[in-house]
Design a protein around this nucleic acid. Structure first.
Length: 208
DNA sequence: CTCTGGATGATCT
DNA sequence: GATCATCCAGAGA
């Protein structure tokens, strides 16, 4: 039980339906397995201003417009990778950001992928840390989790109940309650509102 | 625990 | 040139 894999039809639904259904599922890549405890849905072009696909297809987001059940891995903040699972049929652009999980296998490898010691519950607590734990980088963008090779995703054991709330760290569309998580889970990342940053002074303002 | 600011480069306007 | 689906260290309560 719980060892069957999710099939492609599972992902052939709107991201906000797939995202809560991914809770408790187990993503496996090499020796490391992560049980998903927190996910976020991102919608199709024009409907969700927070989605990478909001303004249409670009080289970066092209995988999101491909068939469902594939990994969309992107690089952000000049140092982090984040992983998504593509939803809806080819030609539509949406997906689910894998925000956090519990490392249930391959603890030694997951610990070794970090340059510093952290508590085990923090190994995949947050989307960039989850990507590190699973060893995801550019080369994994576009891989099929429903195909014969790795990574693979298993049914696991979905929770009886879950929580929903606003998405973390997004600058627009933050009001949409498309973040989902399992209650009383130490591996769920803390909520953070988006913080606008200014690296230089805008033209027209004086510099102190 | 919470809050703040820096790091760092690809991406898009 | 501005922004960014983040993380970390440091300070304070």
């Amino acid at each position: 039980m719980g060892e069957r894999r999710l099939d492609r039809d599972f992902f052939d639904r709107p991201a906000h339906e797939v995202a809560p259904d991914l809770l408790g599922r187990v993503l496996v890549h090499g020796p490391v397995a992560v049980r998903l405890t927190e996910t976020e849905a991102y919608g199709s072009p024009g409907e969700d201003p927070a989605s990478h696909t909001y303004r249409g297809k670009t080289p970066r987001n092209s995988v999101m417009f491909g068939p469902p059940g594939h990994l969309y891995v992107y690089f952000t903040y000049g140092m982090h990778f984040c992983a998504n699972l593509v939803c809806l049929p080819e030609g539509t652009g949406s997906g689910v950001l894998l925000r956090a999980g519990e490392v249930v296998d391959g603890l030694t490898e997951a610990r070794g992928r970090r340059g510093d010691p952290v508590r085990d519950r923090d190994l995949a607590r947050g989307p960039a840390r989850l990507a590190v734990a699973l060893g995801f980088g550019r080369e994994h963008n576009g891989l099929d989790v429903c195909g014969p090779g790795e990574p693979q995703i298993f049914e696991g054991s979905p929770p009886a109940v879950f929580h929903a709330g606003p998405r973390t760290g997004v600058s627009t569309g933050a009001q949409t309650p498309w973040r989902f998580w399992i209650g009383n889970e130490p591996t769920v990342s803390p909520y953070r509102a988006h913080v606008p940053r200014r690296r230089s002074y805008p033209s027209g303002e004086s510099v102190p």
